[in-house]
Design a protein around this nucleic acid. Structure first.
Lengths: 109, 109
DNA sequence: GCAATAGTGAACCAAAAGGTTCACTATTGC
DNA sequence: GCAATAGTGAACCTTTTGGTTCACTATTGC
């Protein structure tokens, strides 16, 4: 059901795949069109697409020989949920205090 | 300066490392103490710690032979920032509409 | 009908991830 | 002083990533 966090975080740990998602945020696109700007073979590009699919981050629609991808952002909601569990550690007064001492320590070295 | 998104997302793409961060959210802890519950060698565990360090997600303090880790959540802020750029895709009316059709399509298959 | 286009699958490769064991260095408790 | 403890480094292994090329299928434009 919910694609797991491992595969989602792994999928977005690569700049090519983040670029694909970023492109799809503007709307659906064909695989070949999306692949064109990337300095790699179409086969290599398709492997990235498959990793995004496995993570549930894109949906594919085949019409004839053309494969159109569209964003499927729901797994990112789970990812955001996990990350936001740590929000207090970068947002709190405590953290700013911590940051202050971190800087002080750097200056002393 | 800002540890890059690749290494941060890669770091949190592993359940062991997410568990380490989760433990550290409760407070600093020694490496050996933290390693104990995990079904792997201390050496293996230390490799995970090093990946978290490389991503800037933990800080290490050595006192004698003991290494204490503490959470350093700032890189997660960048990660959260990236992910939240997609929030509208799971939060919007458009997305719920999209979800509606997705379910409809499933039912037709 | 046929050539061009869209994409996949298989085989291969190098590098990294995720783990192991063993030997080793420091440090500490007693 | 010495044994136990904390952790690292090196060597090794298997699986996965990220890429390639080549051959192939299916579709489409003309």
């Amino acid at each position: 059901m919910t694609a797991n966090l491992d595969s989602v975080f792994l999928a977005i740990a690569d700049p090519t795949r983040r670029a694909i998602l970023s492109r799809l945020a503007e709307g659906p696109a064909r695989i070949s069109d999306m692949a064109a700007p990337f300095p790699m073979s179409l086969t290599g590009f398709c492997k990235h697409v498959r990793m995004l699919e496995r993570a549930g981050l894109v949906r594919r629609t085949r019409r004839g020989r053309e494969n159109t991808l569209e964003l499927s952002a729901k797994p990112l909601r789970d990812a955001a949920g996990w990350v936001s569990g740590y929000e207090r550690f970068w947002a709190s007064r405590l953290d700013r205090l911590e940051a202050f001492f971190a800087v002080k320590k750097e200056n002393l070295q």
